[in-house]
Computed example of a mutant assay.
Amino acid sequence: MAKPYAKSFYNSKAWKGCRASYIATIYDKMCERCHRELGYIVDHIKEITPENIHDPNITLNHRNLQYLCVECHNVKTFQKHNPLRDDVKFDENGDLVQR
């Protein structure tokens, strides 16, 4: 689930076009991290923040994107949080939620 400040960006024509054109560049459509599973999520390597959301060099730049499977995306996301916490989990959409 997109953060509130990013919802309009992820619903924009610019993002949808960028996402589609990036996926089109992936020959085998496999996860670019593990290469074992099909990709599922176009992920920003450098995360979108309220400060950079209007910077197309961050948000719409293919060099800042990667195509990840759900598991690799969740691992990347979870690494940003304390791995010893047991009060959080991922829901069916891959979003971090309280247990």
Rank of each mutant, 00 (worst) to 15 (best):
57 N>G: 07
76 K>D: 03
1 M>P: 11
56 P>I: 04
35 H>V: 10
66 Q>I: 12
11 N>M: 11
28 D>Y: 05
37 E>M: 13
86 D>R: 12
47 E>P: 06
35 H>K: 15
77 T>H: 08
27 Y>I: 15
46 K>S: 09
79 Q>W: 10
17 G>S: 15
3 K>S: 13
18 C>Y: 00
9 F>C: 05
91 D>V: 05
3 K>P: 06
36 R>V: 12
30 M>G: 05
8 S>K: 14
19 R>I: 03
55 D>Q: 07
1 M>K: 15
29 K>G: 05
35 H>F: 15
84 L>G: 13
39 G>A: 06
32 E>A: 05
57 N>Q: 11
76 K>G: 01
26 I>S: 04
30 M>I: 12
46 K>D: 09
73 H>L: 02
15 W>T: 00
19 R>H: 09
74 N>P: 02
81 H>Q: 13
27 Y>A: 15
62 H>N: 10
88 V>C: 10
87 D>E: 08
14 A>P: 00
50 P>L: 08
29 K>A: 04
83 P>E: 04
44 H>F: 05
28 D>P: 03
59 T>N: 00
28 D>T: 02
70 V>I: 14
8 S>E: 14
35 H>W: 12
2 A>H: 13
48 I>W: 03
12 S>T: 09
68 L>P: 01
56 P>N: 08
27 Y>K: 15
38 L>P: 10
48 I>M: 06
44 H>C: 02
57 N>L: 04
69 C>Q: 06
76 K>T: 04
4 P>D: 14
63 R>T: 14
80 K>T: 12
8 S>H: 13
23 I>W: 09
53 I>S: 01
92 E>N: 14
34 C>W: 09
37 E>R: 15
54 H>K: 13
33 R>A: 10
32 E>I: 03
9 F>M: 04
44 H>V: 02
74 N>C: 15
35 H>L: 14
50 P>F: 07
65 L>W: 00
84 L>I: 12
25 T>F: 03
3 K>W: 09
27 Y>S: 15
1 M>C: 11
78 F>P: 00
